[in-house]
Nucleic acid binder design. Structure first.
Lengths: 203, 203
DNA sequence: TTCGTTATCGACAAGACTGTTCATAACGAT
DNA sequence: ATCGTTATGAACAGTCTTGTCGATAACGAA
């Protein structure tokens, strides 16, 4: 007996990779809103338009899905940071660099995802995010700039903290920018912070 | 028929307030580790040593428990901040103020709880935390200091951002200090940050 | 077209979690 | 000591969630 169905839509069959990406996309929106612990197979499947056993078929288990999602999210966050830095080679444009970074972190709410993951204990925390290598690069530029003038080069720790500070601030800011801090204040704050850090690096 | 029991421990009956506090304490440890969405009645009850209907009796529902917990947590965080500031009246000791605040936020992992709540959409975000009033107080001190000297008083926004910056940084730092940043670096970073902010406020 | 692979789904299973009900017993008040 | 209030727990119900299994059909390859 043929089951009476609405219009009997034909079953769509994506390639394994396509299906995985679509599923990860749906899971990512859940990650942003309810965190890794709140991801539900049924909800993910519903959004994608498949049944939940299909999700299990592609990722083995719920934990498998979450791990794949974590890996992809961290990769994208890191890649975004890398792009932002690569687009701003000089040390002069710290303001625009901060805006670039902020923009990247805002894309797909990456800062939110990162904090969710950090809180939930997934991922390697800041260690995974290559902020220390970035600090080393900045330090090198700083050294060359000091070459000519008579100013002494501060210890590496000073540069490292100077890079760490905006990173930490931007992270919190991205979460609180939705609630309690207006976007307008956010823009002004980042500009103010950029000037502060720039002045410190130069002095 | 009397059910065969181990030793038939006598039922303990706490006062309603005592029971509520004990239950909230247990729920708070879960909040720190798995976030508000991860709180489980059975787990809370198990830790307290009661049955889970008892928890429901005192809070009506799971959501009632979470709301009560959120309220108590935010109150404590705010009170902790207030204490830290009250214990450091001058603007001179910004370094020790930062350490005080950091200490308060570390007590009971309050920064963690706050970020969990902010991410999950509970609580009024930063608006609830009276950081703007604190900025106003700092600004007043700044004005009086500038009175005698010939220096111009910067706009309030500058003071407000100067207070906001350590707040944001400390928030992120408290989460990442467990993973990726050693506690030693945390202490040095806070000292460095205090000096930076102090120099900025004076200049 | 034919065939093999496998993405997909329906149905079911097992457990977890919240919430309800009713009986019981602990504690304070008189 | 007696009594009323109510904190407490055992048992049960209903829903949600992950995971399994077998059947089916879509797509690529031949």
């Amino acid at each position: 007996m043929s089951r009476s169905r609405a219009v009997a839509e034909p079953r769509r069959r994506r390639s394994a990779d396509e299906a995985r990406e679509a599923i990860l996309d749906a899971a990512e929106t859940q990650l942003r809103t309810v965190g890794p612990g709140g991801i539900r197979l049924q909800e993910v499947a519903r959004v994608v338009g498949v049944s939940h056993p299909t999700v299990l078929h592609h990722f083995g288990s719920r934990e498998g899905l979450v791990e794949a999602l974590v890996a992809r999210s961290l990769e994208r966050i890191q890649a975004g940071l890398f792009d932002a830095v690569a687009a701003q080679p000089g040390t002069e444009g710290i303001a625009s660099l901060l805006e670039q970074v902020s923009k990247q972190m805002k894309a797909d709410d990456r800062a939110r995802s990162f904090l969710w993951l950090a809180l939930a204990g997934y991922g390697p925390g800041l260690k995974g995010l290559a902020v220390k290598p970035l600090a080393e690069a900045v330090h090198e530029v700083r050294r060359q700039k000091r070459q000519g003038s008579g100013k002494r080069l501060p210890p590496f720790e000073d540069t490292w903290f100077s890079v760490l500070l905006p990173a930490l601030a931007l992270l919190s800011l991205s979460v609180l920018e939705d609630q309690g801090i207006s976007e307008f204040d956010g823009v002004r704050f980042r500009a103010w912070l950029a000037k502060l850090v720039h002045r410190h690096l130069e002095s």
